[in-house]
Structure formats: C-alpha cells, structure tokens
Design a protein around this nucleic acid. Sequence first.
DNA 1: GATGAATGAGGCTTCATTCAT
DNA 2: CATGAATGAAGCCTCATTCAT
Lengths: 202, 202, 202, 202
Amino acid sequence: MAGSTNDGERKPRTDKQRNRAHILDVAEQYFSEHGITGSLDAIAKRAGIGPGTLYRHFPTREALLAALLQARDDELEARRKAIQEQESDSAAALAQWLTAMGQWATAFDGLPEPLRAALVEDKSPLALTCQGFITTTDAFLRAAQRDGRARPEVRGRELFLGVLAASWAASAAMADESSPSALHHLLQAGWATPAERAEHLS
Amino acid sequence: MAGSTNDGERKPRTDKQRNRAHILDVAEQYFSEHGITGSLDAIAKRAGIGPGTLYRHFPTREALLAALLQARDDELEARRKAIQEQESDSAAALAQWLTAMGQWATAFDGLPEPLRAALVEDKSPLALTCQGFITTTDAFLRAAQRDGRARPEVRGRELFLGVLAASWAASAAMADESSPSALHHLLQAGWATPAERAEHLS
Amino acid sequence: MAGSTNDGERKPRTDKQRNRAHILDVAEQYFSEHGITGSLDAIAKRAGIGPGTLYRHFPTREALLAALLQARDDELEARRKAIQEQESDSAAALAQWLTAMGQWATAFDGLPEPLRAALVEDKSPLALTCQGFITTTDAFLRAAQRDGRARPEVRGRELFLGVLAASWAASAAMADESSPSALHHLLQAGWATPAERAEHLS
Amino acid sequence: MAGSTNDGERKPRTDKQRNRAHILDVAEQYFSEHGITGSLDAIAKRAGIGPGTLYRHFPTREALLAALLQARDDELEARRKAIQEQESDSAAALAQWLTAMGQWATAFDGLPEPLRAALVEDKSPLALTCQGFITTTDAFLRAAQRDGRARPEVRGRELFLGVLAASWAASAAMADESSPSALHHLLQAGWATPAERAEHLS
DNA sequence: GATGAATGAGGCTTCATTCAT
DNA sequence: CATGAATGAAGCCTCATTCAT
C-alpha cells in the first residue's frame, strides 16, 4: 500500500529527499484542487504514506505551505532579478513586481488567509517568507518614490497587504466581466481622479 | 432547560417573532466574540433552543448572517441618506459611503469571506444584500464620475469588492503602525503619483 | 449501519433512556473486558451509535464511569442499610462495609485509578460519589471508634483510600496463593484496636 | 544533531557504555518530570539518539525502568545493610525497611503500576528486582515474627504489595491533612502484633 | 412548530515499533 | 552497531444536518 509512489523502486530510503519531494508534489496538486484547507490526512493517503510520516516532515499545515511556496520563492526571486535588470522605469518595475506577487499569492485557493495571519504571528513558518517579500517590495517602492513616481507616504508592508487583499478578492471577481486584476489597478491608481484626491482622505 | 430565555413563562406561543429576535441577539454577541465561523450549536445552546429550531429559523449560516446584517442595513441606509443630504461634494460623499461600508463589513471577524462568496454565488441570502450595496455604491460612484471626481472606468462592483478586501486585511494590519485604514486610502488614491499613473496599467 | 441495536424496532426515539441504558450495558461489558482505559470509540461502535452520540450522553470517560457506578451505588446503599440493621458489632459492620466497597472498586480493571484521582480533583463526576462513600465510611468508623474497636486517629478518608489501594493491588495478587484480600486484612488489623501498636510508628 | 551529548567528540566508539549511561541520566530526569508513561521518543530525542538506538538498549519501557531502578537498588541494598547493622529491634528494622521501599517506589510518578504488573508477569525485567525485594522483606519479616513482633500469618509478598499500594495512593493523599504516609501507618499497625485482632477477619 | 437526540464523517496528533541504510 | 525515517492504528473530539416525537 505504501511505497507505491513515483519511481517504482523498492523503497530506497535515503531518498527521504525523494519522499519529501513526492509529498510536496501531491500536496501541491491537492491544494490546487481543494484549496489550502483540504485535509492533511487526505494528502498523506494520496501520497501513499501514513499520517505520521506527513507529520514528521511537516508538523503544521503552514510548514507544508511554506515548503510548497519556497519552490515558487525561487521563481519569484528570478522574476525580481529580471525586473530589476530589464525595467528601467521604477514605477513600471514596482507594478510588475506587485503583479508577480499577486500571482504567487493566488497559487492556491485560500492562500492569502494564512499569509495575512503570518504577518501578525511571527512564529509562523510563513512569516519569514512574507518578511522577505515586504523587504523586496520596499526596495522597489523606495526606488519609485525616489523618482517621484510613487506616493511618499506609502509603505511596503501596506502594499504587500494590498496585494494579498487583491488576491483574496480575485477568486470572486472572475464571475464578472471585470477583470480579476481590477483591484490591482485600484491599488495602483485608486478610484479618485488624480487632480484632487488627497484632500478627501478621511 | 430550553425556554429559560426571556419571558419566564412556559411558552406563550406567538412568540415566534420574539424567539427569532432573541436568537439574533445571541448570535450577534456570539459572532462578535468568536467570529463568524463559530459553532452554530453553541449559539443555539446559548439561546436556550435546540439546534433544530435554529435551523428552522435560519437554514444556513449565511441566512443567519444575512438576518444579522439586515439590522445594520437600516443603519447604513440611514447613513446613505445622511450623506446624500449633507454632503454636496460627490467625491467626499463616495468616500464617506465606502468608509461606512468598511465599518459594516468589519462587524464580525471573518465577515468579508462569506460576503465575497455571495458575490459569486447568487443563491446566497447575502447576495441580495451585497447587490443592494453595489447599486448604492454605483450611484455614489456615478455622481462622482459625472463631476469628474472619480475615474470613469471604475465600477461599483469593484469598489465594493475593494472595500471588502480592505476590511479583510484590516485585522492583520493592527500590529503595525500603519493604520488599519491604510488600504482604504490606497483604494482611494492608489500608490502611484497622480500625474502619471494611467500609462503603466499592466 | 447504525440502529442495529437491541430491540429490533426501527429507531423508537423518546427512548433516549433506552438508548442510554443500552450504552451503559455495552460500556459495562466493554470495561469488564478491556479495563476502563479501553477505547470510547470502540464502545460507541459496539453500541451501534456514532461517537458523537456517546459524547453527548457522557462527555467524559469519567462521566461514563460515574453513570456506570451509580447503578452499583444503589446496591452499595442497600448493602449499607443491611449492615447497619443486621450487624450490631460496630467493628464487624465497618469491616463488612470496607469489604463491600472493595468489591465495588474492583468492578472494572483499573477503576481505582480514576477514583483516586477524583479524590484530588473536585471537578470529576466521580468526586461526589467518592465523597459520599467517605462520609458513610466515617459513620461506620466513628461508631467503631466510640466502641473502642477502631483506633481513634484513623479517618474515613484514609480508610477509603486504603480500600482503593487494596483494590488496586488486588489484580496482581491473584496469581499468588495469598488471597486477593490479603491487603484488606492488613488494612483491618490496622484500624482495629490493638493493645500495643503505637510505639513503632516510624 | 545526535552525539551532541557529553563529550563533544565525534563518536569515540566504545562509548556504548557511556551512551547507555547517558540515556539513563536523561530517562531519569524525564520520568521524574513526566511520570513513567512519558514518551520514549521524547527521551530518545532529548538524549540525542534515535528511537532505534534507545530500543536497542532497552527493548521495553520496563527494561528501561529496570535499569533505572537498578541504580537505586544499590542505595537500597546499602540501606538494608545499615538497618541490619544498626537496628537491633526487629520490628523497627522491618518498619524502616518498608519505609525505604516506599520511597524507592515513589521515585517516579506511576512507578507502582508496572511494579505491580511485574509481580504477575514473570517475564518482566522488573520481576527480578521485585523478587529480590520480596526476599529481603521476608528476611526482615521473619526476624520480626521470630521475636513475636509481627503477625505470623503475614508474608513478605503481601507486605511488598502493601508498600506498593501505599505508594500508589500517596499521590492523592497530599490534598488532605492526613499525611501521605497515613497508609504506611495503617500497614504497620497491621503487621505489628496486636492483642485481639483476629476475630473480625471477614 | 419546536425540539433536541442522533448521526458519523472527518480533523489532528501521538507513539511504540520496524527496518533499510 | 547505530540511526532515524516510516509506519499506521488508535485516540479523542466537533459540528452541520436530519428527523422522530
């Protein structure tokens, strides 16, 4: 029953790494199908392992998520470098970075929720990830602010949270003609017209 | 054990309305304490009724929520009238309306979630409520757009969703120096500087 | 699957009493077989009910035990009356009462453990039961002490605990030629008035 | 991660003994803190070894306990000699010996339980230890009986079991004004020669 | 209509034990 | 020998929902 996994080999041990990778593969698919609140036991079962084994690798749902996202972290890091190298316009660079994060946060249904929680609870395995993104966002943001392209009072943390919120909202917007990224646009430009927007900040 | 609620009498009959009101009172308090994902059974128990009775009154959690929000609907409706009558500036009026909705959506912890869902699933008892708010938002928005105070491509539905998203994010922002309403500000003004924002919309 | 229980009737409802009684029957047998640490889920399954139903009737293992013992409480109460009426010798009466309690505490394997715990934690459903027995023991004890048949410094609580301890030990003694009640005898020779005993108390 | 124990060296080999000693140290502390039902895995982890290694050294929990108690056996053996040499009164000697065993059996929370079990199951690693104590107890007891200071029908095994039972009860008695050793007193007044006790044996 | 007992799938954890390396 | 990853049964508990009374 167990061990009927990927390669077909017996149960090669030492490839705890392989096993871990297999769990991640399964979890990735399962979360994609059922959202991040899906049953951990079900993931274990689908991976052909006991619940204890899953628990050993990832003691928390968030630990599993963090591992899952780490793979994407690398993609995002690459994306960051690409943006920095190719985009000379600081505002456009920030916009692209936010878009990239928005896609990252939409990887699984329900993902924004634990990410938001991680912003508050420092103990979460996701907290570190979030912090890194906030730092990067801050870098892009400050560059844009230096160029007078981003409003000076905005902060990276707010922007990250804004991206999370927009991603959170995204799953509902699809049923509408309004593009899922409408909120990302709002985030960038707001609803008010430029000339006179500052005065009505409540 | 049951019926030990308000009157002290046996079961005066005709108190179906009274019963319903009592349930709502209890649910309001319970959701305030435990968030909207709290146990319905616990609400029933606290109200001194059986779960079946609760179920009869409100077949779903959404139905209960909708009833709960309806009371606040009246407040919001009053607020709307007040804004319309007292605020001549259309942009300020829209801003005030969005703020009011933001408070409304923060009534219970976790409330934005089912509201978002109601935007997609038309069957939800909350859908009607949401639709009403969207319509009102649209009215405020169009007035502002007529005055050239709101960007013409923005739509009421987006704005409503934006308010929801900002409310969703609010619970996490508190740990930061950034005010919980930072996102509401972003919603209004965006992060980009006014002069040159439209060109980079991805 | 469920409801395949005792009578063969459909699922008569209202006989929540009957259901409860059935659970108790099953639990009694199960605990007799597996000791009191046996699986509650297993009891539920054997009773043909869901775990939730068992939980509703008896939220705690101790609550279940307490209910189980209550039936025997009645027997013990009857025994007490019988002893009081028929035994004029106060020392013999106490001895008989202790013996009766010893049998009561041996009803299930492992029973003395939670009873001991209940002596310390007042919240336990078993605490009340224990307290009642201590009171009764005290009554018998005081009578014997008045007659100079029991050592005056002994207290009912100690004696109850002693009976518990002897019952605890009983399960091991059986493999030996020494009668399982050897400890009860030791206990008795402890409370009985001796001529010369006090000098060696360490 | 492993081997981060005492020496700091890599793994000096031949340290099987040292390893074993280290495990015992850790287990001693762990059982002191969590009682003897604590997790063996936790002990292994705390000792910096794998569960398999722990298992190799001590195939059962009882084996570990037996090893743990063996260290104390030496103390007890010394105590025995001291008593024999210093105490000329055979009854007092027995009393002191029983007291010493009571302390020994209270070393860890829950210890009496497996000791009692070992009296029945001869296969237990603890059985040998118990048997030794019974033998010693018998020696003290017979001396006292020869002097007419202990009741002749009492047997060492009973007395050992009685000490165990009193130790078992000790943890609960603390909440009361009655000293935890109340049962030991009861036990003693049991084995001491009384004038008129036999007639009420039920 | 109202009641609340029953349902039972499903969640998360823990841990003694095995066994490939 | 030592290791520690894997196992997986079993435990307890929760709760939305149904339905007999």
